[in-house]
């Protein structure tokens, strides 16, 4: 059992390494991508400077806390898009029969598919996340907590993408739905929870789980409480298990691109 896990980790890391090597073939493009992503994220600070000139507290967040929220949003995005880039085109992979190559390998299918490429610009997001953290707080404990949280958040985001992507096992034309679903998390993630009311707030702890990926982490980092930490860990595990179960259930319906819709 242990060697199986060890071998799986070895292959996954090798796969990510090769993906990174591909991105680094053109060094200039690689570095420009990262730098532009950093600048891109940084440009939004201007928006918040103006908003905080109108009011000191927005949605229960101070300016620094918004920066930290951005740190979490960027970090979460960075983890999922760097390590698991291909999960965001899972619908297409399923529809065009590109799962075949992973199925015939004696390794975990899902991991092999989603780790087969990396997104260079997501490294920029990861770096930006840590910069925001250091602006707000420099300490070993917050560094470790932040790292743990963005890994959890990244897994949550990836799991949601697995679920949306797996819909392609059952339905046609789910790509746009998956794209929209995934962008929901990104769009909401950078705004303080407190500006929303009612139903929308419950969405953040159910269908669009940025509550667990971003809001609770911000709270815990500001004012440590063990329940928040446990909730995030628990929900991450739960969503991940759900995603895996759905993917493998769908896999039995996999038609390896044989299912072309015929026109009459």
């Amino acid at each position: 059992m242990l060697t199986v896990v060890k071998n799986q980790i070895k292959v996954t890391l090798l796969s990510i390494k090769y993906g990174l090597m591909r991105q680094m073939l053109n060094k200039t493009t690689f570095i420009t991508n990262i730098i532009f992503m950093l600048l891109n994220n940084a440009s939004f600070i201007l928006q918040w400077v103006i908003l905080y000139s109108l009011k000191d507290n927005i949605g229960g967040y101070t300016f620094k806390q918004v920066l930290l929220l951005w740190g979490f949003a960027a970090g979460t995005y960075g983890v999922s898009h760097f390590f698991f880039k291909r999960v965001f085109s899972l619908s297409d992979i399923i529809n065009t029969g590109k799962l075949d190559a992973s199925i015939i390998q004696p390794k975990n299918i899902l991991l092999s598919v989603i780790t087969s490429d990396v997104e260079a610009s997501a490294l920029g997001d990861l770096i930006y996340g840590y910069i925001m953290l250091f602006i707000c707080d420099i300490s070993i404990s917050s560094f470790l907590l932040f790292t743990l949280f963005i890994i959890c958040g990244g897994i949550i985001m990836t799991s949601i993408a697995i679920i949306y992507g797996s819909l392609a096992f059952w339905f046609n034309n789910t790509e746009m739905l998956a794209d929209t679903g995934n962008s929901l998390m990104v769009n909401f993630a950078t705004y303080p929870e407190g500006i929303f009311k009612g139903v929308v707030k419950t969405l953040f702890y159910t269908l669009i789980p940025i509550g667990f990926a971003n809001y609770i982490p911000v709270q815990v980092l500001n004012d440590f409480n063990v329940f928040g930490l446990l909730a995030v860990l628990g929900v991450t595990t739960l969503i991940l298990c759900m995603a895996i179960a759905i993917f493998y259930k769908g896999l039995k319906n996999y038609s390896s691109s044989n299912l072309m819709s015929a026109r009459i």
Binding site: M176, T180, N187, Y191, G194
Partner: peptide, 24 residues
Amino acid sequence: FNLVFGFIGCGIILFIFFNLWHYI
């Protein structure tokens, strides 16, 4: 159809600003 669907992203942004400005 794709365009109508694609509007959802834009609609979300507008919804966020609706909430944001009402808060401010």
